[in-house]
Write a protein that binds this DNA or RNA. Structure first.
Lengths: 329, 329
DNA sequence: ATAACTTCTGAAATCGATAACATGTCAACC
DNA sequence: GGTTGACATGTTATCGATTTCAGAAGTTAT
């Protein structure tokens, strides 16, 4: 494998001069620069980024951690992250937590090991106290999650407001018995949604019913299951905030198959505005979230810290969401 | 930041001894080993992987390149790759080609730069002659794509047979006018599908009709569009191989909305067996592909080469597929 | 004419680990 | 008792670039 010293020897210059050419430093005579470039071209030389990274103590790599990849929300998020990162000459290492704090812990270790320059957490599986200890090794940003006291940038959208908007839409449609689905109980983002839900009910003097709260709502199968649970209830809700388009699609499919009419018997609101909303019958009313932008924006914020010596600080950035009304409500 | 020399000094041993402990070499006395581990723990020391990688000339990183992430097929593929890689202490860098050869070229450059130890191509955007030149820098494996003469491992499934199976199923259902969708014309995988399609027709003495061949079929919107194209035809096919569940879902949705009955007026076969198949009305008959396994297997093959000095060689591995019959046919 | 820059170049140090090699100790064996 | 081999440890070189520092040559300002 060609090394910088070979180029230097052939051109009768020092390694330093070759390095200057490589890094576009000024103060290299035109003739030398051209000759060196020519030899580099001829020998098909590429500098070892292993050596470079070592010397400069930078990896030009960021880590993105999400619960899983094969959920369309996170796939899009990662797409956005990847786009923005590559645009800025950063590479992206991916990690899935599968909702397990140990896996997130492993990502943090990569920061400590200097395998990455910074981390984007698209999920939060550990206590803040655990995460906090890693801040000394590099910037960590929170994306699509929330934490009360985390002293780091948090890029997301207003979960409270989005949920309020969706539930309010159901109320305006005349519904009085409204159910709620969530995925994991302890995520602060989910708690914000629940608060938005309760607030919308309270503002209209509606009571909530614990029987109408459904957990572990991630995918289509969960939708099937939750549909069963609803239909088994003596007193059923007439509308449901599902928190997730997949769950919404599952419920719609199962309910329709069993002869229930959507939205007449049960109105459904999804969340995320994924493409699946367009192909179910009926199509799904949902909350549109600028997922790609979320990922891109987070990378831009991260790079701001990476390319300056700015101290990391709390900074809650909320992108706008939109209620997208379709046939399921 | 703590360095190995500090640990060595505190413990009154040489860096080598600390390094031995770090790498679980034998020939370190129990007392020294324990003391060193204790000090490492106390100082919260972690070896710099930057230095390690540089010294060992390995990155412990592989690159996976796919057309895009937010397509469920590739999201799952990447999930499988990520799982298998992490299991084997490799990290995964992700790249999207967006069907642009330049982006693939960039991935190859990462191999040349020694930013990754090996590459998995989940798409093939360049001529084989271009790719070939990079083999000297590290192993490159093809996954979910095919090439006649590529002298590298190719992990996929039998596209010809899968398509044959699907089209044959339509023929057995009595269809005589069968259409075909593809995504990009020049992918050899797509060509294999087309051959499977023609073979199934030929085996039953059916003619194919060029009007029933539809290109650029990637997503739901393409399904909508292709549906329009079909309905505009004077002589319409009665069945369609879509090559993609998204396209199938789009066509089903659009056709149903316009009053056409699926499968009575138009039978539809998808491809990939993604979760969307379960929520459309009717549900989608499709080809089940072990996508995750595809990703995992590819990583295992790659690591075989990475951890030995075996010469990379052509090796076509085909995982089994299954026809999954649902309501759309 | 001299001081003060600007431009250009190279020698040597450096980043933090691992690898190669040398050496010393002690027990087992013939 | 001398040889052999396993165990334990340290010294020094090394990976391939960038950075620091020093200095030469040429140019401009005073």
């Amino acid at each position: 494998m060609t090394r910088i010293s070979e180029i230097a020897k052939i051109c009768n210059v020092s390694k330093t001069t070759v390095s200057r050419v490589l890094n576009n430093h000024p103060y290299v005579s035109k003739e030398k620069r051209e000759q060196i470039l020519k030899v580099i071209e001829e020998l098909d030389y590429a500098p070892s980024s292993l050596a470079r990274n070592f010397r400069t103590n930078k990896t030009q790599t960021i880590a993105i951690s999400v619960p899983r990849f094969d959920h369309p929300f996170f796939a899009q998020l990662v797409k956005g992250v990847s786009l923005a990162a590559l645009d800025n000459d950063y590479k992206v290492l991916i990690f899935q937590t599968f909702y397990d704090s140990k896996n997130e812990w492993d990502v943090m270790e990569k920061l400590k090991n200097r395998e990455v320059d910074g981390v984007i957490l698209g999920a939060l599986e550990n206590e803040w106290n655990v995460i906090k200890n890693y801040l000394k090794y590099g910037p960590i940003l929170l994306c699509n999650e929330y934490h009360d006291s985390a002293s780091i940038p948090i890029i997301g959208y207003d979960e409270f407001e989005a949920t309020y908007k969706a539930v309010n839409h159901l109320i305006k449609k005349g519904h009085r018995k409204i159910g709620f689905c969530y995925d994991t109980a302890y995520s602060q983002a989910q708690i914000q949604r629940k608060e938005g839900f309760y607030k919308a009910l309270a503002d209209t003097n509606l009571l909530h019913n614990e029987d109408w709260i459904f957990g572990h709502g991630f995918n289509i199968e969960d939708g099937f299951r939750i549909c069963d649970e609803i239909l088994r209830l003596k007193e059923k809700p007439t509308a449901l905030f599902t928190g997730n388009d997949q769950v919404a699609a599952g419920i719609i499919k199962k309910a329709t198959m069993l002869g229930y009419k959507i939205p007449e018997h049960l109105a459904i609101v999804g969340y995320d505005n994924q493409s699946i909303c367009q192909v179910t019958t009926p199509t799904i009313t949902t909350i549109d979230i600028p997922i790609m932008e979320l990922g891109q924006r987070t990378v831009i914020e991260l790079i701001k810290y990476l390319s300056s010596d700015m101290e990391l600080r709390r900074d809650v950035i909320k992108l706008p969401t939109k209620l997208k009304i379709r046939e399921s409500t």
